[in-house]
Amino acid sequence: MNHNELKLEIELIPESTMHLNLRNRLTSYQWRQFSQDIQKRDQYSCCICHRVKGDTIDKLHCHEIWTFDTDVQVQYLNGFQSLCFQCHMIKHIGFATMNDWVEKYQLIEHFCTVNEVSRKQYAQHFHDAVQLWIARNQITWHVDLGDYIS
């Protein structure tokens, strides 16, 4: 399975940087306002499964998009996207299931439906994501929030 073909992928953040993000640098009010601006930009729909807020889902989450440069050991904040609860929980499936926010089988079902793949293909993707997470946990990352923070 080519990961470039997946609409929805698991993105496990390294343990050392899990809480080093824009959301934790802003007040609750600032994050809510920022999140609402992102939702408006995304036309109040999930950027992955395209369900619409107020129609097929109750709310959207603001998801931070990260890239990792292992050569310089920097984790870059590259943008944001509106995601429904299920898509957002798949992105962070380890954290979501660890905190009992949702049943894992529901996330697997959503992943398979959105990506039009089998449970076996999900299992392979999950395995690959965990291996990447383990490798990234060996690195001392520097977090770059870019122009989003002054």
Rank of each mutant, 00 (worst) to 15 (best):
Y29D: 07
R23C: 11
Y29V: 11
C112L: 01
I108M: 06
E64R: 05
Y44H: 14
I65Q: 12
V130W: 04
K53F: 03
E103D: 14
Y29A: 09
F34C: 05
A96G: 04
N2K: 12
C112W: 00
V114K: 03
T70E: 06
E109S: 07
E109H: 10
Q33L: 11
D42N: 12
V143D: 07
M1F: 01
L132I: 09
Q30F: 02
Q81K: 15
W31C: 04
H125E: 01
Y122H: 00
N24V: 01
H3T: 01
H88M: 10
F85I: 05
H63S: 06
C47T: 12
R23M: 04
V130N: 10
R23H: 12
Q138S: 13
S150D: 09
W141L: 05
V130F: 09
K53N: 03
C112Q: 01
A129W: 02
I10F: 05
P14R: 02
K104F: 06
Y44S: 00
R32L: 09
K53T: 06
T140H: 12
H63L: 03
D144I: 03
E11C: 12
Q43R: 14
H19C: 07
Y76Q: 10
Q124C: 00
S82T: 05
H63Q: 11
A135S: 11
S45W: 06
Q43E: 13
H63W: 08
K59N: 08
N115H: 06
A129K: 10
L132N: 14
V117S: 02
A96R: 12
T27E: 02
D69E: 08
M18A: 12
Q86S: 08
A135K: 15
A129G: 06
R32T: 08
A135Q: 13
N99C: 07
Q121I: 04
T97H: 09
E5N: 10
H63C: 03
W101E: 04
Y105I: 13
Y105D: 06
Q131C: 13
Q81Y: 03
